[in-house]
Amino acid sequence: MLPLVLESVTFEVAGRRIIDRVDATFTHGTRTVILGPNGAGKSVLLRLCHGLLIPSEGAVRWGRGDDSIARQAMVFQRPVLLRRSALRNLTHALALRRVPRRERLARARAALDTVGLASVAERSARVLSGGEQQRLALARARAVEPAVLFLDEPTANLDPAASREVESVIQDIHEAGTKIIMTTHNLGQARRLGDEVLFLARGRLVERAGIDDFFRHPSSSEAVAFIRGELPWH
């Protein structure tokens, strides 16, 4: 279904422009990290790509016209898990993707295994720790075998140890062939997980570069300031 193409995508709320004419193409294989200061529009851009928001102007197109949300998955900053067991959270997601009933349990268990949560399969998802909940959300995304996985600041609420575990799961999902598009404001994480960077500022796509190029030779003054930890708009 890739490439994903954004054509002059604009998003406005009450006359305020959150995303301003963004053009971009996302292809298979690379891990794309969307960087930018708070309020740059990173999360909104991700939601526009995923189809949770509809552009005010412009278009979001998928290759071969396949824009089905069924081939995509998203992991949010704060995982939203259902009030049922970890395992049942996964079978619920599989049922929504019309996976035949007899395959669901095995696939759910396999996905739990890959994130190291097999031992808490029967525990209620809502009483797991923050790190476990986020890994469960990743397992749920992984279980449906998406072509593209969107992640919105997946480790923002986690301690360093839990963050490392989540990063390693993201790496696994990438290696299994899923396109990764994630936002973060953690520059270390961007370096560890990213192949390329889209840098946003005030809703505009200011810069796009390979990960090393971006950190070594940022070409825009906003990116230079961001990397230096200076946020002139705050």
């Binding site: 939601r47 995923h50 949770l52 949300i69 069924a70 995509q72 998955a73 998203m74 949010f76 939203v80 259902l82 619920h92 997601a93 929504l96 993707r97 749920r140 449906v144």
Partner: peptide
């Protein structure tokens, strides 16, 4: 709380 997640799941 759940809306976006449920829509994302299809």
């Amino acid at each position: 709380e759940y809306g976006e997640q449920l829509r994302s799941l299809g």
